[in-house]
Each structure stands twice: as C-alpha cells, then as structure tokens.
Design a protein around this nucleic acid. Structure first.
Lengths: 152, 152
DNA sequence: AGTTGCCGGTCGATTGCGTCCACGTCCGTA
DNA sequence: TACGGACGTGGACGCAATCGACCGGCAACT
C-alpha cells in the first residue's frame, strides 16, 4: 500500500469504470503493472467491489429513514435481532452502536406507508424493545469520498 | 426505464466493472444497444456514477460516528451550517431531518481524538446549538443494494 | 391504406484495451 | 559476487468499445 496504490484507490473511488490503460497513464506505470496492483488491492480486501451509484428516487425508493433500535434482552438475543433485520431488504445499512440504542438502521422505502409497515414489523420482533425513527426530508449528500490517508 | 434497463441497473449495482459485452450477454441484446441504454441511464441521472467500494479501515478511517445536529436559529442560518459542514471532509453523508435534530451526519475519522476535534468544531459553528453523537462499534453492513422496483 | 419519420435495434469494421508471457532491473541476502 | 524474489517494461494476440450504415416496427398524418 504505497503512494501509487493510494492513488489508484482514489481514482477508482472516483470512477470505477476507468480502464487499466487510463489508470496507467494517470499514475505513470504500464497497464500490466496497474492490472497487477489493482488485483492485489482486491485480493487483500482494500477494494471490496465496484458499484454503480443509482439515484434512489429513480428506482422508486424515495423515502429514507434512520431507525434507532433499543434492545430488549428479556425477549430475545442480539443475534436474533440481527438475523431478522438482515432479512429485511429495506434496511440498507446496519450499525451496532454504543449507547442506549443498540442498532442504528438506515432504511429506504418507496412510501411512508411502507415505512409504517416496516416499523411495525420491527417493533414486533423478539429482542427489540422499541424503536425511534427519524425521516430524512432530503439527502444533502451521501457517501462522499474522503482522501485516503496513511494507515497508521 | 423498462425491464431491461432495470436489469442493467441491477447488474451494474452489483459490479460496476462489467464490460458492455458481458452486460449484453446477460440481458440478451447486442453490445452497442447496451452501450446506448447505459449512456441514457447516465444522462438521465438514474445512474449517478461508479465507485470502488473501499474498506474504510484499510485507508485509516476506522471510526464511524453518527452525529445529530440541533439547530440554533438565533446564531446563524441553516445554509451557513450546511456550508460549514460541507467543508468538513470527515462528514461522509448529510441528511436534513424531520425532528428536533435538523441534521444527521455520518462522519468517518481515524481516531477517537479526531472525532473529538470534529465535534468541538461542530459545536463551535454558528447556527448549531448542540450536537449528539453516537459512535458505531461495528458496521454490520452498509449500502446493501435493494432490488429496483417499478417507479410509481 | 399508404407514406414518412423516428426510435431502437443488429451487423461489420476499426481502433484500442486486457491480459499473458518473456525478459530486465533493483535490492536484500548468502 | 552470485542468487532469488518482487516488481517493473514491452510485445503479441484476442476480445471489447465504439462508430457508421442499415433495418424493422410503430405512430402520425395525408
């Protein structure tokens, strides 16, 4: 993970469809060398994949909500909660948190009605005492890339 | 935005580096046809870009925090807050929320110390009354793709 | 109904990329 | 000095990207 690797990561984070030839030009190496470096970055887990960034509204997912989950240890295990939540495709992200709310979920649905159903389902699952949901009125930005730095 | 477009979006969300030839095979069209469709999806804003998914820990950003921001209308404007926050590269996402906390920020930093500095800076900016931050102990998953659906 | 245009597709050709392989260079070590 | 490995370059070859020409289906208009 030297300076050129970091540069490659940066470039691919900005545009994952750059050709190896183009990457090679940008970093001043030959295409095969870049190919090998990128392969190693993928194999070592630094680069986990390449994804198109799709406008959620354009695919019928205009409602974003953040849901804090307070655990109820008397009615179920933490792993049960996780398994249940994992089976809900609306839950786009899931963080295990410090604080009273054990989980913070980011959900994406099409309508407020669907959000309501989702919340009801959550409150009904064993291991969840209650939830607190906040609806995003607008997304100012999301997943903005940050310069990679020297890993300590 | 017909069934084939949705299939293309789906495929590119899974792997943004698929070749047009491969996409063409998957959806049963010729490569130029796919090329044109994808171009239109990009032009119309359905596909906003292609990004490598990088392991944050591998690039020295192991600490994730979610910060709720309570606004103080007496000391500054909402847009000032937004501008200030936009200039903080640590803030990866920013949602304008319903509820007492006007903004919900997702921040990514390398150390708890850096998080502390970030919070201090936030609390100091005009227009922000106070903040409430929760640290993610672990990220169970993030940005999981959800099947595209018929836009209503 | 016939004609005309347009949209969106295929096909074929050319240019350039991806990828394999042989080889060279630098560096640490015996 | 000799050796070995990591990492690079350059060449070659097959496939992909991309352009232009062409074609079929559909809708609107006469």
């Amino acid at each position: 993970m030297d300076a050129i690797d970091r540069q490659l990561v940066e470039l691919l984070r900005g545009n994952a469809r750059l050709s190896y030839a183009e990457l090679a030009r940008q970093v001043g190496l030959s295409a095969p060398a870049v190919h090998e470096r990128v392969g190693k970055l993928e194999a070592s887990g630094v680069v986990r994949g390449y994804h198109a960034d799709v406008d959620p509204e354009a695919v019928g997912l205009g409602v974003t909500a953040l849901i804090g989950v307070v655990q109820d240890s008397s009615s179920g295990d933490i792993d049960d909660v996780l398994d249940t939540v994992r089976d809900m495709p609306e839950i786009e992200s899931c963080y295990f948190m410090a604080g009273e709310e054990s989980f913070l979920l980011k959900a994406r649905v099409g309508t407020i009605t669907e959000l309501e159903h989702l919340i009801v389902r959550l409150n009904r699952t064993p291991g969840i005492a209650r939830t607190r949901t906040a609806v995003a009125l607008s997304t100012k930005w999301e997943g903005r890339p940050q310069a990679t730095r020297e890993p300590s």
